[in-house]
């Protein structure tokens, strides 16, 4: 994957991922930035039933999805949609 050349690699920004899954037991953010490993960015449940996670990401576009009790789920609020390397539909987040 070509790295972003639109700004310095050191340019990172915090992004809050939010997933609405009130009855889920375990929710993670998976994406290119953590090699789609669900154990690296576990989300925390809020009293309202949504899950959130703050992740620092480099400038550019990142593919991601939520892993909800083992099932991959798109972010309905995402700015974009594409597929991952395994052909699964995933979301896109722009960091600028």
């Amino acid at each position: 994957m070509q790295k972003s050349r639109y700004s310095a690699d050191r340019n990172v920004q915090a992004y809050y991922f939010v997933c609405d899954a009130p009855i889920a037991q375990i929710v993670s953010v998976v994406g290119d930035f953590n090699k789609w490993n669900p154990s690296l960015h576990r989300m925390e449940k809020t009293p309202g039933g949504t899950w959130s996670k703050r992740i620092e990401l480099r400038h550019g576009h990142h593919r991601y999805a939520f892993m909800v009790d083992g099932d991959l789920r798109l972010d309905p609020t995402a700015m974009g949609i594409t597929k991952d390397d395994r052909g699964r539909r995933v979301s896109i987040v722009p960091i600028s």
């Binding site: 994957m1 070509q2 550019g60 576009h61 974009g80």
Partner: peptide, 14 residues
């Protein structure tokens, strides 16, 4: 974002 997605995520069409 459209062309950048093509470049960064190696997409043929955005």
């Amino acid at each position: 974002d459209l062309p950048e997605i093509c470049v960064e995520l190696e997409q043929d069409l955005c």
